[in-house]
Design a protein around this nucleic acid. Structure first.
Lengths: 276, 276
DNA sequence: TGCAAATGTGTTATTATGACGCAATGTAAT
DNA sequence: ATTACATTGCGTCATAATAACACATTTGCA
């Protein structure tokens, strides 16, 4: 979502004149073709990565703004929403070729860009239907993905935008209800951990059991017993032990593993704990 | 969603003149105030009930149509979507005071009412923006609820509409992608069965273990062992055994139980199978 | 009266889980 | 080199959960 507050207007305008290709222009482009986009509906993406034994989230900051936001955008009328999610993520971050999973839709009445003041709209020459289109309540569909931190290098669509991996425990204030959206994504991920294996997309090709355990502990926000974790995770049958140890580590070198792709997919289909 | 095909037009028109308060009028009312509704966005409800040891779904049939549909409708701009879901269900079925849970959002490009032919729109005097508003792609948010079959007596908003409880295994052809929506709701319900207790809203005050088991078997589409089911379900600690047996039954009279409301809620919060 | 069908209450073997013990491996300080 | 220490790998044990099954009880009905 695009948010421009009154007090940021001058900064944005200066920036606009300098760069010639920034958020504001992107916004104008969309507004000029607003009939090609689904009205009052947007998509926001929660992209999780794992690095330094920490769960990271991909966030975007518009220059001269204090608050960050999730990468999001509008829905082309000629795209299924699942396709639009990929489009949106790619347009905002350059990230492509990943599987996005819908997890919830957010539609509080207050979900509009209240920061679009009359002055801002006039300054940006947004009037009438366009202004109405932009300032109405936007319902947003949340998608999340788990990606390989090292292989996913975000590229801002506009040079003056900042995209960063931020530790999920150190996420600053976010615009609108993006904090709630992020929280819901994490809760969904936490639930899914009980139903299916997780890690294939989050960890590098080769990894150690302690690394995988840290991932689980981070997502669950809970300490697990080393020995029981090893037994349980290996019993699932999705891991292949390599004849190779991790190098350049303090203390005893841990063994390296890979995921058995076939068995992993099989377990994904059937689920872990059937319960009944 | 309102669907009127070319060949049904005459029937609908006749009906309109007779009843004076039907689907078409409802549609007109909405279109006259279409700015009060979220554009291109709707809500569809999947209401589950349980009766005669069968899982039932609440479906609506418009007169002179062959296909049924889920109870759905549009979203007032001044209501949170969760509130709008309750509003929509109440307006279409008269059912009120139940908890609706969002489970997925559906937004294929083809999700529009293709049956609105030019002739139909002209006949109904729907032109310009109104026609555009109505015929665009509608993204729909799916909500589901579990209700007490005997206490939930649907009342059609229009006298010529038919609302019926239909066995989930005998659901006929539905409009648009409503079959897919129903399937997803059932899949969600099936998954939730592994995470939390189910039955509080679906069964009457007093019920028997075999009845509860039938409910589980119906949702899971799987046979369960009587004795193991009893042990597992009682171990959860949400049941209170009554000093009373079911009367007027063939064979041995089964014992009656109630849910321990407090413990039930407690388990709902914490979940069943933590997994990790 | 006896049978069929359903319920109530076990038993047993197997597996999964949680809470530990202890040796092996490597770094770093003395 | 020796020692301390953190971390990994492998194993034990008591308990709980699960799957499969046996048997007695209750009730309607032929």
């Amino acid at each position: 979502m695009f948010v421009i507050s009154k007090n940021e207007l001058n900064c944005v305008l200066n920036q606009y004149q300098k760069s010639g290709f920034n958020k504001t222009k992107m916004l104008k482009d969309i507004l000029e073709n607003y009939e090609n986009y689904q009205p009052g509906l947007s998509i926001d993406c929660v992209i999780f990565g794992f690095h330094d034994n920490q769960l990271k989230v991909l966030l975007i900051k518009i220059p001269h703004r204090e608050t960050w936001s999730l990468p999001g955008g509008f829905i082309p009328v000629n795209q299924d929403i699942d396709v639009a999610a990929v489009t949106v993520l790619n347009e905002r971050t350059g990230v492509d070729g990943i599987f996005l999973r819908q997890f919830a839709t957010f539609g509080k009445v207050k979900r509009n860009d209240q920061h679009f003041s009359k002055e801002a709209l006039e300054y940006l020459e947004i009037f009438e239907e366009k202004a109405k289109w932009l300032t109405r309540r936007f319902v947003t569909i949340g998608y999340y993905a788990l990606v390989d931190f090292l292989k996913t290098i975000p590229k801002p669509a506009n040079k003056d935008e900042i995209i960063e991996w931020i530790d999920h425990k150190e996420v600053p204030e976010l615009i609108l209800d993006h904090k709630e959206i992020l929280g819901k994504a994490l809760a969904t991920l936490r639930m899914e951990l009980n139903l299916m294996p997780v890690g294939y997309n989050l960890l590098p090709e080769k990894f150690t059991i302690p690394e995988l355990q840290k991932l689980y502990e981070t997502i669950l926000d809970k300490k697990l017993d080393r020995r029981n974790f090893l037994r349980k995770i290996t019993n699932i049958g999705i891991l292949t032990k390599l004849d190779e140890k991790k190098s350049n580590v303090a203390h005893k070198a841990p063994n390296l593993y890979t995921f058995d792709k076939d068995k992993y997919k099989e377990v994904l289909k059937n689920g872990l704990n059937q319960g009944w």
